[in-house]
C-alpha cells in the first residue's frame, strides 16, 4: 500500500462542465484498460457477492459444527473443517460480511468528513485553518491500530466503535490532501468569477471547487479503503473484532494460528488468504485509479 504524497494537485485552468465530463470519461476508459484494475474488481466483486448472499453460496451453515472435526480439505469441505467441525469454506464466505460492512463504512465516513473539513480549511483559511491544521497534525500522530485498541477497551467492542475510530483517524489524513488541492483551486479564475457573480461560499465550495478536486478524493477513497480493510482485519486479529461465533476473518486467523503447528493449516490459511486477497484487490484498484488520475 502506498500512501501517496499529499501534493497531488490537479492543476486546472477554468474547466467547463462538458470538458470535465469528457476528462472523466477518458480517465474511466484508461482505468478500465488496466489489467490490475480488472483483476482487482473481479476479486472484490466475488467478496461483495459473498457478503450479500453468504447463506445462498455457502454449502453449509457457517455455525453448523456437526460435520466432523479438523477434516482436511476435501470435495465436501474444500477448505476443511475447524476444531468444532464447522466448514471453513462456509465460514470464510460468511466472514466477508463483517469486514465489508465495517471497512467501507469507515473509509466512506472518513473521506466524507475529511472532504468537508479539508474544503473548509482550504477555502476559508485564516484562523480556522491554522487551528484545524494543528489538530489534524496531532491526529496524524495517533497510531490507528493502537488508538483502535484503546477505544475498544474503554468504549466497548462494537462495530460502531471500530467504524468511528477508524473514520475519525482517516478524516485528518483526507482533510490534509483535500486542503492542498483546494488551496490550488481557490486562486483560479473560475473561483474568482464565481465570487464576483456573488455566489454563496457554500455554492462555490461544493458546486464549483468540489467537482474539480474529485480526482484526489477518488484516489483517497480507494487508498483509504485498502487501509481500512487492513486495519479492521488487524484489530479483529488482536481481539477487537466482532465476538464469536461470528466467522470474522481476523478472529478466525487469531483463533487458529497456533493450530498450524499441529498440521491443521487450512483453518488459518484460508481466512488469512481471504484477508490478503481482499486487501490486494482493493489496492490494485487504488493503484490503477491513482496512476491514471496522476497522469491526467
Amino acid at each position: 500500500m502506498t500512501d501517496h504524497p499529499s501534493s497531488i494537485v490537479v492543476p486546472g485552468q477554468m474547466p467547463d462542465v462538458s470538458e470535465r465530463k469528457q476528462a472523466r470519461r477518458e480517465n474511466w476508459r484508461l482505468i478500465r484498460r488496466r489489467p490490475a484494475f480488472l483483476i482487482g474488481m473481479a476479486i472484490l466483486l466475488v467478496w461483495v457477492v459473498c457478503a450479500l448472499f453468504p447463506l445462498t453460496i455457502a454449502p453449509h451453515h457457517p455455525l453448523d459444527f456437526r460435520t466432523g472435526l479438523n477434516q482436511s480439505p476435501s470435495w465436501d469441505h474444500p477448505f476443511g473443517t475447524d476444531q468444532t467441525g464447522r466448514d471453513v469454506f462456509s465460514r470464510v464466505i460468511a466472514g466477508a460480511r463483517d469486514i465489508l460492512r465495517i471497512a467501507p463504512a469507515a473509509a466512506v465516513l472518513g473521506v466524507l468528513f475529511g472532504v468537508i473539513l479539508g474544503m473548509l480549511m482550504g477555502y476559508i483559511r485564516g484562523w480556522f485553518d491554522i487551528i484545524a491544521s494543528r489538530i489534524v497534525e496531532s491526529f496524524l500522530a495517533l497510531p490507528v491500530v493502537l488508538v483502535g485498541l484503546l477505544a475498544v477497551t474503554t468504549m466497548g467492542n462494537s462495530a460502531w466503535v471500530v467504524i468511528g475510530v477508524v473514520a475519525a483517524l482517516f478524516t485528518p489524513i483526507v482533510a490534509r490532501t483535500v486542503r492542498a488541492a483546494v488551496l490550488a483551486e481557490r486562486e483560479l479564475d473560475y473561483v474568482t468569477s464565481a465570487k464576483l457573480r456573488g455566489e454563496s461560499t457554500m455554492f462555490i465550495m461544493f458546486r464549483e471547487i468540489l467537482p474539480n478536486v474529485m480526482g484526489p478524493i477518488v484516489v483517497e477513497l480507494t487508498v483509504r479503503l485498502g487501509y481500512a480493510v487492513f486495519t479492521v482485519a488487524t484489530l479483529s486479529f488482536l481481539g477487537a473484532g466482532p465476538p464469536p461465533p461470528s466467522p470474522d476473518w481476523g478472529s478466525q486467523v487469531s483463533d487458529n494460528y497456533s493450530s498450524i503447528v499441529s498440521g491443521f493449516w487450512w483453518r488459518t490459511f484460508f481466512p488469512a488468504g481471504a484477508i490478503a486477497s481482499l486487501v490486494i484487490s482493493v489496492n490494485m484498484i487504488a493503484d490503477s485509479v491513482q496512476s491514471v488520475m496522476e497522469a491526467s
Binding site: M1, G226, F230, A233, T234, F237, L238, V253, S254, Y257, I260, V261, W265, T268, A272, I275, A276, V279, I280, N283, M284, D287
Partner: peptide
C-alpha cells in the same frame, strides 16, 4: 503490492510455524 497487503500477523504466523516450529 502483495507483500504490503498481507497483514504482518499473517506473515508472522506462517514464518513461526514453518521455521521455528517445523
Amino acid at each position: 503490492l502483495a507483500s504490503s497487503s498481507i497483514p504482518e500477523f499473517v506473515t508472522a504466523s506462517v514464518l513461526l510455524s514453518i521455521f521455528a516450529v517445523q
